[in-house]
């Protein structure tokens, strides 16, 4: 139950990549916030993050938390989607040895994890290499 509502609450971000852009200074927040930490404005507009970006840094997880143990090794990285704005996601559909900082990626809708075999399935975006 706890996981179900927690996941559902994040749908705008997880399903549609909606972020909040500060109406005053333009800083982008993902997830949305109530106050901008840069200019203290409380006014935001909803924007949709682009579906492509660049790998800023990454790693390959070989020892995983319980929910991800069957998936090792898997790559995860910090992806710059807008200038000065980045977020974290897995990098899928690629040979981990071939990932590099600066690599172009596009986002695809994937299963991120599930609450066991019988619980809810949690979806979101992963990055996949553009070049391949």
């Amino acid at each position: 139950m706890g996981i179900t509502a927690r996941n559902w609450r994040e749908y705008p971000q997880r399903y549609r990549l909606e972020a909040a852009k500060c109406s005053q200074c333009g800083k982008v927040f993902f997830p949305p916030r109530l106050i901008c930490n840069q200019c203290k404005s409380r006014k935001f507009e909803t924007i949709k993050l682009p579906g492509e970006g660049t790998v800023k840094t990454f790693t390959v997880i070989r020892v995983a938390p319980t929910n991800f143990i069957d998936e090792v090794p898997y790559a995860i990285g910090i992806i710059e989607l807008l200038e000065g704005f980045s977020t974290m996601m897995q990098i899928a559909d690629c040979d981990p040895e071939k990932i590099s900082i600066g690599m172009k990626v596009k986002l695809e809708f994937r299963k991120i994890q599930s609450d066991g075999e019988a619980g809810v399935i949690m979806y979101g975006y992963k990055a996949v290499p553009v070049s391949e």
């Binding site: 998936e71 899928a92 695809e108 809708f109 994937r110 299963k111 991120i112 399935i121 979806y123 992963k126």
Partner: peptide
């Protein structure tokens, strides 16, 4: 399909 792909994820990508 990869373990992270199912009917829903593919349906979303096709719809997009």
């Amino acid at each position: 399909p990869s373990p992270d792909q199912d009917t829903i994820t593919m349906a979303v990508e096709a719809a997009k």
